[in-house]
Amino acid sequence: MTDKLKKEIKEAFEIDSPVGKKQFLKDFRYPKLNKTDFILEQIFYIRKKTWLFSVLIMGFIFWFLHFYENSSTPNMNLWIISSLMPFLALIFTVELSRSSMFKMEEMEAGCLFGLSQIFLARMLIMGIWNGILLFIIALTANLYLPEGMIKIFLYLLAPYLLVNGLSFYFINNKRERGEIYSCAAIAVMVSICGMIMPRFLKRYSENIGTWVMSVVWITGLFMVLTQLRKMHKKLEEDRWNFA
């Protein structure tokens, strides 16, 4: 059968007009997303400015490490980088609590992939992204700074975890709309403390500083784990209860 013949048959053949097309389309059950697809789709719903600000913070740290002279105070440059981590944590917290910020909780709770699933998806995506950023920052810092990788990781993670832990605590325990404002305040206070801490620690700051960071790290980790669990549990309950 030649192409010409095929084409002519097509043109000559008159198709019956569809019957009940509207009803069929109305009743048609489209296949739903599976969990993996849902999580992958959520990547595209993370706001562009979240990615942008994260990258900007990382870029600033690279600039600082490359161009800033090493301070005479021990660990000073590491403290400075460490004091920028609260802002990275703030970005994480803000993205995670987007549903409550924009009062979308109720609507999202009524969907197939409910609020808790959305929350977990965001946490996974932002957790991986921030993990990658922290790793890259740590590797870069290791190239420019005399401190070892373990110490660098400790100094980077400690304020990050502390800010996240405190922010989640506020989000879990506050009913008011100003919770995200409190998170920003926490990030700023921790950041300022990180900037000024090394200035008044004397020559033994190397040990004291590490001890402080270790305590902060443990506290932060504990708070993050407990508060995240509480947050996830709360999302599955009815929050709108004035009793």
């Binding site: 600082f64 400075i80 995200i180 404002y181 920003a184 990030a187 950041s191 300022i192």
Partner: peptide, 18 residues
């Protein structure tokens, strides 16, 4: 919102130290 005020002001406070 106060959120952006805090973020920008704290950056204006901290960044010049560098």
């Amino acid at each position: 919102t106060p959120f952006w005020v805090i973020v920008v002001c704290s950056l204006l406070l901290i960044a010049p130290m560098f």
